[in-house]
Nucleic acid binder design. Structure first.
Lengths: 269, 269
DNA sequence: ACTAATTTGTTCGTATGTATG
DNA sequence: ACATACATACGAACAAATTAG
Protein backbone atom coordinates (compact mmCIF):
# COMPACT_ATOMS: atom_id res chain seq x y z
CA UNK A 1 0.00 0.00 0.00
CA UNK A 2 2.55 2.54 1.18
CA UNK A 3 5.53 2.29 -1.15
CA UNK A 4 7.72 4.64 0.82
CA UNK A 5 9.84 3.28 3.65
CA UNK A 6 8.09 4.62 6.73
CA UNK A 7 11.42 4.90 8.55
CA UNK A 8 12.50 7.57 6.11
CA UNK A 9 9.37 9.69 6.07
CA UNK A 10 8.37 12.41 8.45
CA UNK A 11 4.71 11.54 8.10
CA UNK A 12 2.83 8.91 10.07
CA UNK A 13 3.44 5.25 9.39
CA UNK A 14 0.54 2.90 8.95
CA UNK A 15 -0.15 0.82 12.03
CA UNK A 16 -0.99 -2.87 11.95
CA UNK A 17 -4.32 -3.70 13.54
CA UNK A 18 -3.07 -7.16 14.44
CA UNK A 19 0.27 -8.84 14.81
CA UNK A 20 2.19 -5.64 15.29
CA UNK A 21 1.67 -5.53 19.04
CA UNK A 22 -0.58 -3.09 20.90
CA UNK A 23 -1.64 -0.12 18.85
CA UNK A 24 -0.61 2.33 21.52
CA UNK A 25 2.90 0.88 21.58
CA UNK A 26 3.15 1.11 17.80
CA UNK A 27 2.01 4.71 18.08
CA UNK A 28 4.66 5.43 20.70
CA UNK A 29 7.37 4.01 18.49
CA UNK A 30 6.17 5.87 15.43
CA UNK A 31 5.96 9.16 17.29
CA UNK A 32 9.41 8.60 18.74
CA UNK A 33 10.70 8.02 15.22
CA UNK A 34 9.07 11.21 13.98
CA UNK A 35 10.38 13.18 16.96
CA UNK A 36 13.89 11.90 16.26
CA UNK A 37 13.65 12.85 12.60
CA UNK A 38 12.72 16.40 13.54
CA UNK A 39 9.17 16.37 12.31
CA UNK A 40 6.88 18.45 14.56
CA UNK A 41 9.38 21.32 14.50
CA UNK A 42 6.37 23.53 13.77
CA UNK A 43 4.38 22.26 16.70
CA UNK A 44 3.35 18.90 18.03
CA UNK A 45 -0.11 17.75 16.90
CA UNK A 46 -2.97 17.72 19.40
CA UNK A 47 -4.72 14.63 20.57
CA UNK A 48 -7.56 14.93 18.11
CA UNK A 49 -5.16 15.59 15.25
CA UNK A 50 -3.40 12.31 16.05
CA UNK A 51 -6.75 10.56 16.31
CA UNK A 52 -7.58 11.69 12.79
CA UNK A 53 -4.07 11.09 11.46
CA UNK A 54 -3.79 7.51 12.67
CA UNK A 55 -7.43 6.56 12.78
CA UNK A 56 -7.30 5.56 16.44
CA UNK A 57 -9.49 6.30 19.41
CA UNK A 58 -8.66 9.14 21.70
CA UNK A 59 -7.95 6.78 24.60
CA UNK A 60 -5.37 4.91 22.55
CA UNK A 61 -3.70 8.14 21.50
CA UNK A 62 -3.75 9.34 25.08
CA UNK A 63 -2.17 6.12 26.28
CA UNK A 64 0.69 6.60 23.82
CA UNK A 65 1.10 10.25 24.73
CA UNK A 66 1.28 9.38 28.41
CA UNK A 67 4.27 7.16 27.68
CA UNK A 68 5.98 9.99 25.82
CA UNK A 69 5.20 12.40 28.64
CA UNK A 70 6.64 10.01 31.18
CA UNK A 71 9.75 9.81 29.03
CA UNK A 72 9.96 13.58 29.12
CA UNK A 73 9.85 13.89 25.35
CA UNK A 74 6.51 15.65 25.29
CA UNK A 75 5.09 18.17 27.70
CA UNK A 76 1.45 19.06 27.96
CA UNK A 77 -0.80 21.14 30.10
CA UNK A 78 -4.47 21.77 30.16
CA UNK A 79 -6.01 24.17 27.75
CA UNK A 80 -3.02 24.63 25.47
CA UNK A 81 -4.56 24.70 22.00
CA UNK A 82 -1.89 22.69 20.18
CA UNK A 83 0.36 20.26 21.95
CA UNK A 84 3.86 21.29 22.73
CA UNK A 85 6.80 19.21 21.66
CA UNK A 86 9.76 19.11 24.01
CA UNK A 87 12.80 18.08 22.03
CA UNK A 88 14.56 21.09 23.58
CA UNK A 89 13.42 20.45 27.16
CA UNK A 90 16.81 21.00 28.75
CA UNK A 91 18.33 18.03 30.56
CA UNK A 92 15.68 16.76 32.88
CA UNK A 93 16.80 13.76 34.82
CA UNK A 94 19.69 12.75 32.62
CA UNK A 95 21.25 10.36 35.04
CA UNK A 96 23.66 10.91 37.85
CA UNK A 97 25.66 13.84 36.55
CA UNK A 98 22.60 16.00 36.31
CA UNK A 99 21.55 15.10 39.83
CA UNK A 100 24.98 16.25 41.01
CA UNK A 101 24.27 19.64 39.51
CA UNK A 102 20.83 19.73 41.11
CA UNK A 103 22.15 18.56 44.45
CA UNK A 104 24.69 21.36 44.65
CA UNK A 105 22.18 23.92 43.45
CA UNK A 106 19.55 22.84 45.96
CA UNK A 107 21.99 23.52 48.79
CA UNK A 108 22.21 27.11 47.65
CA UNK A 109 25.87 26.80 46.72
CA UNK A 110 27.51 28.48 43.75
CA UNK A 111 28.16 26.35 40.71
CA UNK A 112 31.40 28.05 39.70
CA UNK A 113 33.81 26.36 37.36
CA UNK A 114 37.37 27.20 36.41
CA UNK A 115 38.08 26.38 32.81
CA UNK A 116 41.51 24.79 32.47
CA UNK A 117 41.37 23.94 28.80
CA UNK A 118 39.08 24.68 25.88
CA UNK A 119 40.49 23.82 22.49
CA UNK A 120 40.22 21.68 19.39
CA UNK A 121 42.26 18.53 19.18
CA UNK A 122 42.39 15.12 17.62
CA UNK A 123 42.30 12.22 20.05
CA UNK A 124 41.91 8.76 18.64
CA UNK A 125 40.78 7.20 21.90
CA UNK A 126 37.90 9.54 22.55
CA UNK A 127 36.94 9.94 18.91
CA UNK A 128 36.55 6.18 18.89
CA UNK A 129 34.33 6.29 21.97
CA UNK A 130 32.13 8.78 20.16
CA UNK A 131 31.93 6.42 17.22
CA UNK A 132 34.05 8.68 15.00
CA UNK A 133 37.18 8.27 12.91
CA UNK A 134 40.32 8.58 15.00
CA UNK A 135 41.45 11.71 13.24
CA UNK A 136 38.14 13.54 13.69
CA UNK A 137 38.70 16.88 15.42
CA UNK A 138 37.11 17.18 18.85
CA UNK A 139 36.29 20.10 21.07
CA UNK A 140 37.93 19.43 24.41
CA UNK A 141 36.82 21.13 27.62
CA UNK A 142 38.43 20.59 31.00
CA UNK A 143 37.05 22.30 34.05
CA UNK A 144 37.45 22.23 37.80
CA UNK A 145 33.99 22.43 39.32
CA UNK A 146 33.33 23.99 42.69
CA UNK A 147 30.46 23.85 45.13
CA UNK A 148 30.79 27.02 47.13
CA UNK A 149 34.47 27.38 47.97
CA UNK A 150 35.58 23.79 47.78
CA UNK A 151 36.54 21.96 44.59
CA UNK A 152 34.30 18.99 44.02
CA UNK A 153 35.00 17.50 40.64
CA UNK A 154 37.26 17.50 37.61
CA UNK A 155 35.22 17.50 34.46
CA UNK A 156 36.58 16.55 31.04
CA UNK A 157 34.34 16.66 27.99
CA UNK A 158 34.96 15.64 24.39
CA UNK A 159 32.51 16.78 21.73
CA UNK A 160 32.51 16.31 17.94
CA UNK A 161 33.92 19.50 16.44
CA UNK A 162 31.44 19.59 13.57
CA UNK A 163 28.62 19.92 16.10
CA UNK A 164 30.31 21.80 18.92
CA UNK A 165 32.42 24.41 17.10
CA UNK A 166 30.29 27.36 18.30
CA UNK A 167 31.09 26.40 21.90
CA UNK A 168 34.71 27.51 21.51
CA UNK A 169 33.59 31.08 22.08
CA UNK A 170 31.34 30.29 25.03
CA UNK A 171 31.92 30.93 28.72
CA UNK A 172 31.69 27.83 30.88
CA UNK A 173 32.44 29.31 34.27
CA UNK A 174 28.83 28.73 35.31
CA UNK A 175 28.70 25.09 34.33
CA UNK A 176 25.90 25.22 31.81
CA UNK A 177 27.32 23.05 29.05
CA UNK A 178 24.07 21.37 28.07
CA UNK A 179 22.19 24.62 27.86
CA UNK A 180 24.80 26.11 25.53
CA UNK A 181 25.17 22.92 23.53
CA UNK A 182 21.46 23.11 22.90
CA UNK A 183 21.05 26.81 22.17
CA UNK A 184 24.31 27.44 20.30
CA UNK A 185 24.59 24.15 18.44
CA UNK A 186 21.07 22.77 18.38
CA UNK A 187 22.21 19.57 20.10
CA UNK A 188 20.08 18.38 23.00
CA UNK A 189 21.36 15.40 24.91
CA UNK A 190 18.41 13.12 25.49
CA UNK A 191 19.94 9.75 26.24
CA UNK A 192 23.11 7.85 26.89
CA UNK A 193 24.84 5.72 29.45
CA UNK A 194 27.03 6.17 32.49
CA UNK A 195 29.62 3.99 34.13
CA UNK A 196 30.71 4.69 37.68
CA UNK A 197 33.81 3.36 39.38
CA UNK A 198 35.68 3.87 42.60
CA UNK A 199 39.29 4.92 42.06
CA UNK A 200 42.15 6.55 43.88
CA UNK A 201 42.95 9.94 42.37
CA UNK A 202 46.39 10.58 40.95
CA UNK A 203 48.53 13.00 42.95
CA UNK A 204 47.83 15.64 40.32
CA UNK A 205 44.09 15.14 40.55
CA UNK A 206 44.27 15.11 44.33
CA UNK A 207 46.04 18.46 44.34
CA UNK A 208 43.43 19.98 42.07
CA UNK A 209 40.59 18.68 44.22
CA UNK A 210 42.42 19.72 47.43
CA UNK A 211 41.62 16.28 48.78
CA UNK A 212 43.36 14.48 51.60
CA UNK A 213 45.78 11.70 50.80
CA UNK A 214 43.47 8.90 51.91
CA UNK A 215 40.49 10.00 49.84
CA UNK A 216 38.88 7.85 47.20
CA UNK A 217 36.91 9.24 44.30
CA UNK A 218 34.15 8.31 41.91
CA UNK A 219 34.82 8.33 38.20
CA UNK A 220 31.73 8.85 36.11
CA UNK A 221 32.09 8.26 32.39
CA UNK A 222 29.14 9.37 30.32
CA UNK A 223 28.40 8.82 26.68
CA UNK A 224 25.63 11.23 25.75
CA UNK A 225 23.46 10.75 22.67
CA UNK A 226 21.05 12.92 20.72
CA UNK A 227 18.85 11.56 17.97
CA UNK A 228 20.77 8.32 17.94
CA UNK A 229 24.19 9.93 17.51
CA UNK A 230 26.88 10.06 20.18
CA UNK A 231 27.44 13.73 20.86
CA UNK A 232 29.36 13.80 24.14
CA UNK A 233 31.90 11.81 26.04
CA UNK A 234 32.50 13.02 29.54
CA UNK A 235 34.73 11.93 32.37
CA UNK A 236 33.98 13.40 35.76
CA UNK A 237 36.11 12.69 38.80
CA UNK A 238 34.13 13.41 41.95
CA UNK A 239 35.58 13.63 45.42
CA UNK A 240 34.48 10.51 47.27
CA UNK A 241 34.54 12.18 50.67
CA UNK A 242 31.87 14.69 49.74
CA UNK A 243 29.52 12.79 47.49
CA UNK A 244 27.64 9.57 47.53
CA UNK A 245 25.03 7.82 45.44
CA UNK A 246 21.76 6.91 46.97
CA UNK A 247 18.60 5.28 45.88
CA UNK A 248 15.22 4.18 47.13
CA UNK A 249 14.08 0.97 45.58
CA UNK A 250 10.63 0.81 47.09
CA UNK A 251 9.55 3.12 44.35
CA UNK A 252 11.71 3.18 41.26
CA UNK A 253 13.63 6.36 41.78
CA UNK A 254 16.96 5.35 40.28
CA UNK A 255 20.22 6.63 41.63
CA UNK A 256 21.15 10.16 42.57
CA UNK A 257 24.45 11.71 43.43
CA UNK A 258 24.18 13.88 46.51
CA UNK A 259 26.37 15.80 48.86
CA UNK A 260 27.15 14.02 52.06
CA UNK A 261 25.69 15.49 55.18
CA UNK A 262 28.70 14.80 57.35
CA UNK A 263 31.79 16.77 56.38
CA UNK A 264 34.39 13.99 56.38
CA UNK A 265 33.12 10.49 57.07
CA UNK A 266 36.16 8.75 55.58
CA UNK A 267 35.80 5.12 56.62
CA UNK A 268 32.61 5.74 58.48
CA UNK A 269 31.51 2.25 59.40
CA UNK B 1 -22.06 1.71 58.96
CA UNK B 2 -18.92 -0.34 59.32
CA UNK B 3 -18.03 -0.38 62.98
CA UNK B 4 -14.75 -2.20 62.52
CA UNK B 5 -11.64 -0.22 61.77
CA UNK B 6 -10.88 -1.09 58.16
CA UNK B 7 -7.16 -0.83 58.82
CA UNK B 8 -7.41 -3.86 61.07
CA UNK B 9 -9.49 -6.11 58.84
CA UNK B 10 -8.33 -8.36 56.07
CA UNK B 11 -11.49 -7.73 54.06
CA UNK B 12 -12.12 -4.89 51.69
CA UNK B 13 -12.69 -1.40 53.04
CA UNK B 14 -15.58 0.65 51.77
CA UNK B 15 -14.54 3.29 49.25
CA UNK B 16 -15.87 6.83 49.21
CA UNK B 17 -17.44 7.85 45.93
CA UNK B 18 -16.47 11.46 46.52
CA UNK B 19 -14.06 13.35 48.71
CA UNK B 20 -11.78 10.39 49.25
CA UNK B 21 -9.78 11.00 46.10
CA UNK B 22 -9.90 8.92 42.93
CA UNK B 23 -11.53 5.55 43.34
CA UNK B 24 -8.64 3.72 41.71
CA UNK B 25 -6.19 5.29 44.18
CA UNK B 26 -8.36 4.29 47.12
CA UNK B 27 -8.42 0.79 45.67
CA UNK B 28 -4.64 0.74 45.32
CA UNK B 29 -4.19 1.80 48.91
CA UNK B 30 -6.71 -0.69 50.19
CA UNK B 31 -5.14 -3.53 48.22
CA UNK B 32 -1.69 -2.53 49.43
CA UNK B 33 -2.98 -2.61 52.99
CA UNK B 34 -4.46 -6.06 52.47
CA UNK B 35 -1.28 -7.33 50.81
CA UNK B 36 0.78 -6.05 53.74
CA UNK B 37 -1.55 -7.71 56.24
CA UNK B 38 -1.05 -11.03 54.49
CA UNK B 39 -4.55 -11.44 53.15
CA UNK B 40 -4.55 -13.12 49.71
CA UNK B 41 -2.20 -15.81 50.99
CA UNK B 42 -4.56 -18.28 49.36
CA UNK B 43 -4.53 -16.50 46.00
CA UNK B 44 -5.02 -13.00 44.75
CA UNK B 45 -8.55 -12.24 43.53
CA UNK B 46 -9.14 -11.82 39.81
CA UNK B 47 -10.33 -8.66 38.16
CA UNK B 48 -13.98 -9.65 38.17
CA UNK B 49 -13.79 -10.75 41.79
CA UNK B 50 -12.56 -7.28 42.72
CA UNK B 51 -15.26 -5.71 40.57
CA UNK B 52 -17.88 -7.57 42.58
CA UNK B 53 -16.13 -7.06 45.91
CA UNK B 54 -15.74 -3.29 45.62
CA UNK B 55 -18.63 -2.51 43.29
CA UNK B 56 -16.43 -0.79 40.70
CA UNK B 57 -16.11 -1.08 36.95
CA UNK B 58 -13.53 -3.36 35.45
CA UNK B 59 -11.58 -0.42 34.01
CA UNK B 60 -11.23 1.17 37.42
CA UNK B 61 -10.07 -2.10 38.92
CA UNK B 62 -7.60 -2.56 36.07
CA UNK B 63 -6.26 0.94 36.60
CA UNK B 64 -5.51 0.11 40.21
CA UNK B 65 -4.00 -3.25 39.33
CA UNK B 66 -1.69 -1.60 36.80
CA UNK B 67 -0.21 0.50 39.59
CA UNK B 68 0.38 -2.60 41.69
CA UNK B 69 1.91 -4.41 38.74
CA UNK B 70 4.26 -1.51 38.07
CA UNK B 71 5.27 -1.67 41.72
CA UNK B 72 6.08 -5.34 41.26
CA UNK B 73 3.64 -6.42 43.95
CA UNK B 74 1.31 -8.24 41.59
CA UNK B 75 2.04 -10.25 38.48
CA UNK B 76 -0.49 -11.14 35.84
CA UNK B 77 -0.77 -12.72 32.45
CA UNK B 78 -3.56 -13.66 30.13
CA UNK B 79 -5.81 -16.53 30.89
CA UNK B 80 -4.52 -17.38 34.34
CA UNK B 81 -7.68 -18.22 36.21
CA UNK B 82 -7.10 -16.28 39.38
CA UNK B 83 -4.69 -13.46 39.55
CA UNK B 84 -1.38 -14.25 41.07
CA UNK B 85 -0.09 -12.21 43.95
CA UNK B 86 3.62 -11.75 44.24
CA UNK B 87 4.32 -10.78 47.83
CA UNK B 88 6.81 -13.68 47.95
CA UNK B 89 8.36 -13.02 44.55
CA UNK B 90 11.92 -13.42 45.78
CA UNK B 91 14.11 -10.37 45.27
CA UNK B 92 13.31 -9.11 41.82
CA UNK B 93 15.22 -5.98 41.07
CA UNK B 94 16.07 -5.03 44.60
CA UNK B 95 18.64 -2.44 43.71
CA UNK B 96 22.33 -2.70 43.17
CA UNK B 97 23.24 -5.47 45.57
CA UNK B 98 20.94 -7.90 43.84
CA UNK B 99 22.38 -7.00 40.46
CA UNK B 100 25.83 -7.79 41.85
CA UNK B 101 24.60 -11.27 42.64
CA UNK B 102 23.10 -11.61 39.17
CA UNK B 103 26.19 -10.23 37.50
CA UNK B 104 28.46 -12.81 39.09
CA UNK B 105 26.01 -15.60 38.41
CA UNK B 106 25.59 -14.64 34.75
CA UNK B 107 29.34 -15.00 34.27
CA UNK B 108 29.07 -18.59 35.38
CA UNK B 109 31.20 -18.01 38.45
CA UNK B 110 30.68 -19.64 41.81
CA UNK B 111 28.96 -17.59 44.47
CA UNK B 112 30.90 -19.01 47.40
CA UNK B 113 31.05 -17.19 50.66
CA UNK B 114 33.18 -17.74 53.74
CA UNK B 115 31.30 -16.96 56.91
CA UNK B 116 33.53 -15.09 59.35
CA UNK B 117 30.96 -14.37 62.01
CA UNK B 118 27.40 -15.40 62.75
CA UNK B 119 26.19 -14.51 66.23
CA UNK B 120 23.76 -12.51 68.32
CA UNK B 121 24.91 -9.20 69.71
CA UNK B 122 23.68 -5.83 70.87
CA UNK B 123 24.96 -2.88 68.88
CA UNK B 124 23.42 0.50 69.57
CA UNK B 125 24.56 2.04 66.31
CA UNK B 126 23.03 -0.54 64.03
CA UNK B 127 19.98 -1.12 66.17
CA UNK B 128 19.33 2.58 65.83
CA UNK B 129 19.67 2.36 62.03
CA UNK B 130 17.06 -0.36 62.07
CA UNK B 131 14.78 1.87 64.09
CA UNK B 132 15.14 -0.25 67.22
CA UNK B 133 16.12 0.37 70.84
CA UNK B 134 19.86 0.38 71.28
CA UNK B 135 19.82 -2.68 73.49
CA UNK B 136 17.80 -4.77 71.04
CA UNK B 137 19.61 -8.01 70.22
CA UNK B 138 20.67 -8.33 66.60
CA UNK B 139 21.75 -11.24 64.44
CA UNK B 140 25.12 -10.33 62.95
CA UNK B 141 26.51 -12.02 59.87
CA UNK B 142 29.88 -11.23 58.31
CA UNK B 143 30.97 -12.96 55.15
CA UNK B 144 33.70 -12.73 52.55
CA UNK B 145 32.12 -13.22 49.18
CA UNK B 146 33.94 -14.71 46.23
CA UNK B 147 33.38 -14.74 42.51
CA UNK B 148 35.21 -17.78 41.31
CA UNK B 149 38.56 -17.80 43.09
CA UNK B 150 38.96 -14.13 43.86
CA UNK B 151 37.43 -12.34 46.82
CA UNK B 152 35.10 -9.60 45.70
CA UNK B 153 33.30 -8.16 48.68
CA UNK B 154 33.04 -8.06 52.44
CA UNK B 155 29.43 -8.33 53.51
CA UNK B 156 28.17 -7.38 56.95
CA UNK B 157 24.50 -7.77 57.82
CA UNK B 158 22.53 -6.80 60.90
CA UNK B 159 19.04 -8.25 61.38
CA UNK B 160 16.53 -7.92 64.24
CA UNK B 161 16.90 -11.01 66.41
CA UNK B 162 13.17 -11.40 66.95
CA UNK B 163 12.72 -11.91 63.22
CA UNK B 164 15.98 -13.55 62.23
CA UNK B 165 16.63 -15.99 65.07
CA UNK B 166 16.06 -19.09 62.87
CA UNK B 167 18.91 -17.96 60.61
CA UNK B 168 21.49 -18.74 63.31
CA UNK B 169 21.33 -22.39 62.28
CA UNK B 170 21.51 -21.72 58.53
CA UNK B 171 24.39 -22.17 56.14
CA UNK B 172 25.35 -19.03 54.25
CA UNK B 173 28.24 -20.35 52.20
CA UNK B 174 26.12 -20.09 49.04
CA UNK B 175 25.08 -16.48 49.61
CA UNK B 176 21.34 -16.92 49.69
CA UNK B 177 20.42 -14.72 52.63
CA UNK B 178 17.20 -13.37 51.17
CA UNK B 179 15.92 -16.80 50.22
CA UNK B 180 16.51 -18.10 53.75
CA UNK B 181 15.21 -14.95 55.42
CA UNK B 182 12.02 -15.50 53.48
CA UNK B 183 11.55 -19.24 53.88
CA UNK B 184 12.85 -19.64 57.44
CA UNK B 185 11.57 -16.40 58.93
CA UNK B 186 8.76 -15.35 56.65
CA UNK B 187 10.45 -12.01 55.99
CA UNK B 188 10.62 -10.93 52.35
CA UNK B 189 12.56 -7.78 51.66
CA UNK B 190 10.52 -5.74 49.19
CA UNK B 191 11.89 -2.23 49.52
CA UNK B 192 14.52 -0.06 51.04
CA UNK B 193 17.32 2.28 50.12
CA UNK B 194 20.99 2.11 49.26
CA UNK B 195 23.82 4.58 49.64
CA UNK B 196 27.01 4.10 47.69
CA UNK B 197 30.34 5.75 48.39
CA UNK B 198 33.90 5.52 47.17
CA UNK B 199 36.35 4.78 49.98
CA UNK B 200 39.82 3.48 50.53
CA UNK B 201 39.75 0.13 52.31
CA UNK B 202 41.48 -0.23 55.64
CA UNK B 203 44.61 -2.38 55.61
CA UNK B 204 42.62 -5.16 57.25
CA UNK B 205 39.91 -4.99 54.60
CA UNK B 206 42.50 -4.82 51.87
CA UNK B 207 44.12 -8.00 53.12
CA UNK B 208 40.79 -9.82 53.20
CA UNK B 209 39.97 -8.72 49.66
CA UNK B 210 43.51 -9.49 48.46
CA UNK B 211 43.49 -6.07 46.80
CA UNK B 212 46.50 -4.04 45.75
CA UNK B 213 47.55 -1.07 47.82
CA UNK B 214 46.27 1.53 45.38
CA UNK B 215 42.78 0.09 45.06
CA UNK B 216 39.64 2.02 45.92
CA UNK B 217 36.39 0.35 46.88
CA UNK B 218 32.68 0.95 46.85
CA UNK B 219 30.76 0.87 50.11
CA UNK B 220 27.12 0.01 49.69
CA UNK B 221 24.91 0.52 52.71
CA UNK B 222 21.45 -0.89 52.41
CA UNK B 223 18.47 -0.55 54.67
CA UNK B 224 15.98 -3.22 53.65
CA UNK B 225 12.31 -3.03 54.57
CA UNK B 226 9.42 -5.47 54.56
CA UNK B 227 5.85 -4.41 55.18
CA UNK B 228 6.99 -1.00 56.32
CA UNK B 229 9.41 -2.32 58.95
CA UNK B 230 13.20 -2.13 58.68
CA UNK B 231 14.39 -5.72 58.64
CA UNK B 232 17.98 -5.51 57.41
CA UNK B 233 20.97 -3.23 57.55
CA UNK B 234 23.81 -4.27 55.34
CA UNK B 235 27.24 -2.89 54.60
CA UNK B 236 29.00 -4.33 51.59
CA UNK B 237 32.52 -3.33 50.64
CA UNK B 238 33.15 -4.14 47.00
CA UNK B 239 36.53 -4.11 45.30
CA UNK B 240 36.64 -1.06 43.08
CA UNK B 241 39.02 -2.63 40.58
CA UNK B 242 36.61 -5.39 39.67
CA UNK B 243 33.20 -3.76 39.80
CA UNK B 244 31.55 -0.70 38.43
CA UNK B 245 28.08 0.74 38.24
CA UNK B 246 26.56 1.42 34.92
CA UNK B 247 23.30 2.71 33.63
CA UNK B 248 21.48 3.57 30.44
CA UNK B 249 19.33 6.62 30.76
CA UNK B 250 17.70 6.54 27.36
CA UNK B 251 15.31 4.03 28.77
CA UNK B 252 14.95 4.09 32.53
CA UNK B 253 17.01 1.09 33.45
CA UNK B 254 18.42 2.32 36.72
CA UNK B 255 21.88 1.38 37.92
CA UNK B 256 23.47 -2.03 37.95
CA UNK B 257 26.65 -3.25 39.49
CA UNK B 258 28.67 -5.32 37.07
CA UNK B 259 32.03 -6.95 36.80
CA UNK B 260 34.50 -4.97 34.79
CA UNK B 261 35.57 -6.46 31.50
CA UNK B 262 39.16 -5.35 31.83
CA UNK B 263 41.03 -7.08 34.65
CA UNK B 264 42.77 -4.08 36.19
CA UNK B 265 41.86 -0.70 34.74
CA UNK B 266 43.04 1.23 37.80
CA UNK B 267 43.11 4.85 36.71
CA UNK B 268 42.00 4.04 33.20
CA UNK B 269 41.43 7.45 31.72
C1' DA C 1 -5.64 -33.90 21.78
C1' DC C 2 -9.56 -31.24 21.58
C1' DT C 3 -13.18 -28.06 23.20
C1' DA C 4 -15.21 -24.83 26.11
C1' DA C 5 -14.99 -21.74 29.85
C1' DT C 6 -12.33 -18.42 32.18
C1' DT C 7 -9.41 -14.49 32.55
C1' DT C 8 -6.61 -10.98 31.17
C1' DG C 9 -5.08 -7.54 27.36
C1' DT C 10 -6.52 -4.16 24.30
C1' DT C 11 -9.51 -1.13 22.10
C1' DC C 12 -13.59 1.27 21.30
C1' DG C 13 -17.49 4.45 22.72
C1' DT C 14 -19.29 7.45 26.07
C1' DA C 15 -19.81 10.49 29.98
C1' DT C 16 -18.77 13.79 33.88
C1' DG C 17 -15.96 16.99 36.24
C1' DT C 18 -11.97 20.08 36.48
C1' DA C 19 -8.23 23.12 35.19
C1' DT C 20 -6.02 26.23 31.98
C1' DG C 21 -5.38 29.77 28.28
C1' DA D 1 -17.75 32.58 28.50
C1' DC D 2 -15.47 29.46 25.67
C1' DA D 3 -12.41 25.99 23.66
C1' DT D 4 -9.06 22.76 24.75
C1' DA D 5 -7.11 19.24 27.33
C1' DC D 6 -6.70 16.46 31.38
C1' DA D 7 -8.51 13.01 34.99
C1' DT D 8 -11.65 9.91 36.11
C1' DA D 9 -15.21 6.45 35.47
C1' DC D 10 -18.46 3.29 33.22
C1' DG D 11 -19.98 -0.13 29.60
C1' DA D 12 -19.12 -3.16 25.75
C1' DA D 13 -16.62 -5.94 22.57
C1' DC D 14 -13.04 -8.79 20.70
C1' DA D 15 -8.40 -11.09 20.92
C1' DA D 16 -5.10 -13.98 23.11
C1' DA D 17 -3.63 -17.11 26.47
C1' DT D 18 -4.54 -20.43 30.02
C1' DT D 19 -7.00 -23.77 32.46
C1' DA D 20 -10.65 -27.28 33.18
C1' DG D 21 -13.09 -30.84 31.45
Amino acid sequence: MNGIDPKLTAGPASLQRSGGGPLWRQLVEDLRRRLDSDAFSDGFPGEMALVDEYGLSRQTVRHALKVLRDEGRVVASRGRPPRQAAPAELAQRLGTLYSLHESVRSLGLDQRSVVHTLDVRADGVYAHRLGLEESTPLVYLERLRFAGDEPLAIDQVWLPHDLAAPLLEADFSTTALYERYSTLCGVTVTGGAERIQAVIPTPHERRLLKAEADTAALVIRRLGTAKGRSVEFRRTLVRGDRFELHSDFAGQDGYHLDLLRSPHPKQCR
